[in-house]
């Protein structure tokens, strides 16, 4: 082989290996840094081990927001129309955090089943539902439908989604 070509080939080979290694590392690091979204139903069913960082979301249940007497702690529940999860958060809530609004929280489940949030997100548009929450609501509705059909639809008057303790 022509020495010039050999040199070139070696350079290309080096680059390919370097790029390959970088991609491998990047993908590994990516897999360590993803936060899965879990619906309240999934959490209520115990599908999420405590301590793992996930994103959880749903509609904030009316009347469930309770502020601590001191400091900035706040506790509220979110629902997907089927199950509810209590969330505790310490800090400033976003402007569009309201009862009935769809939110997404990042954090971990503690051993008592409370979701300890480090971040609470609500988008700056009252018409906008976080897509994950939208999906969770739909899933819950689908589940509700399936359950009803299993119950042989004897009680067709039952409304969809259990509501949330109004």
């Amino acid at each position: 082989m022509h020495p010039q070509r050999k040199k070139r080939l070696r350079l290309i080979l080096f680059l390919v290996i370097a790029v390959g290694a970088a991609v491998g590392l990047a993908m590994y690091s990516l897999s360590q840094n993803i936060n899965l979204f879990q619906t309240p139903t999934q959490i209520a069913n115990g599908e999420v081990p405590p301590g793992r960082t996930i994103r959880a979301g749903g509609l904030v249940v009316e009347g469930s927001v309770v502020r601590d007497k001191e400091g900035l702690g706040v506790t509220f529940r979110v629902t997907d129309g089927q199950s509810e999860v209590p969330i505790h958060y310490e800090g400033i809530l976003p402007d569009l955090f309201r009862e009935g609004q769809g939110i997404v929280a990042l954090g971990q489940l503690d051993n008592s089943g409370v979701f300890e949030a480090s971040e609470v997100l609500a988008k700056h548009d009252e018409n906008y539902m976080p897509p994950e929450v939208q999906d969770a609501l739909e899933k819950a509705h689908l589940d509700g439908k399936a359950k009803m059909e299993n119950a042989n639809s004897s009680d067709t008057d039952t409304s969809y989604g259990k509501g949330a303790g109004y």
Binding site: N33, I34, N35, L36, D135
Partner: peptide, 20 residues
Amino acid sequence: VYDFMGLGKLSVGAAWFNTM
């Protein structure tokens, strides 16, 4: 892509971008 494959919803944390 993850969503397309029906594996669920996720987000890539800012930490990853910073690491890169």
